[in-house]
């Protein structure tokens, strides 16, 4: 195994997309990096006292405040005259980003801190047992949006978090997927080369929460992208740069591998609605090759 700053021996589940992505991020960022981490799976499985998987300075405070803590870290380094050459990364899951952490994140973006925010998006509160978040996709069956005689799973669409981040006028906002490791690392390096606040949202399958085989993580991640359900793009100074999809696949190919969408497969009308979400993404972000 190549030298890494995120050591094995942590307690993530087999096939955890977040663990893979977190390693890709820190290894691309390098050792001159300080991380502020929100509460969530990543924090829990990587820093159970007295052991830590992190070979860089790393701090966890609370569920929603990594953006503010990172702002403080960056300000402290600036006061010391030590910011030059040091990367500050704030990272969180989707709930810690789009729900409880949104206010602190917005404050950090608006204030212009030189911090890269990384959202590991596994589309629900997995650490507490698969409850719905603001980034849970439409119809997903979670423990707080269960299917039932009066419910078809999560009734609301995903919050457009990358667009919300970009709307702050920040120099760089992007999405990525753990299905494309080189793309993640390229974007991390690019982001860290830009001064100011940056936002990167990485799609990370959760085999337990999505109910797919743990060996299928890369495949599921890729299918989310290839169907248009997880658009990959960058905003560089507000300019949209999409990652084009060579051959668009029908959404069913992605949905059928996951227990959380099982109820859709028997319902052609629902499938059509999900296909419409993908079609909308393709159009909005210009994903067609």
């Amino acid at each position: 195994m190549a030298e890494t700053l995120f050591k094995p021996g942590h307690t993530a589940c087999a096939g955890c997309g977040q663990a893979i992505a977190a390693r890709l991020v820190i290894d691309a960022a390098g050792k001159n990096t300080i991380i502020a981490n929100n509460t969530g799976c990543l924090e829990v499985f990587s820093t159970k006292y007295p052991e830590s998987a992190w070979c860089v300075p790393w701090i966890h405070s609370l569920f929603e405040n990594c953006s503010a803590v990172a702002s403080g870290v960056e300000s402290g380094l600036k006061f010391l005259g030590k910011k030059e050459g040091v990367n500050v990364i704030a990272q969180a899951g989707d709930g810690g980003t789009a729900d409880i952490g949104l206010q602190a994140l917005s404050g950090m973006l608006e204030r212009g801190h030189d911090v890269l925010f990384v959202c590991y998006d596994n589309e629900a509160y997995m650490n507490t047992g698969i409850q719905r978040s603001g980034l849970t996709p439409t119809t997903s069956n979670t423990t707080t949006t269960p299917t039932g005689s009066a419910s078809f799973g999560n009734p609301r669409p995903k919050k457009p978090m990358p667009d919300i981040a970009a709307a702050h006028g920040i120099p760089y906002a992007a999405t990525a997927s753990v299905g494309y490791p080189q793309d993640i690392q390229k974007k991390v390096k690019k982001a860290l080369g830009i001064k100011g606040p940056k936002y990167l949202q990485i799609h990370v399958p959760c085999p337990l929460g999505w109910r797919h085989e743990s060996s299928l993580t890369p495949e599921v991640a890729k299918l989310a992208v290839e169907t248009g359900l997880y658009p990959i793009f960058e905003y560089e100074n507000g300019q949209l740069i999409p990652r084009k999809i060579a051959t668009l696949k029908p959404v069913e190919e992605y949905l059928k591998l996951q227990g959380r969408f099982k109820h859709l497969l028997k319902d052609p009308k629902a499938l059509k609605e999900i296909q419409a979400v993908a079609d909308y993404n393709v159009k909005k972000y210009g994903l067609s090759a």
Partner: peptide, 17 residues
């Protein structure tokens, strides 16, 4: 900052450096 929650979090982060 945008709230007292963040004010306390910023000084937490700064003090941690």
């Amino acid at each position: 900052v945008e709230s007292e929650h963040s004010a306390a979090s910023v000084v937490l982060g700064a003090e941690a450096t």
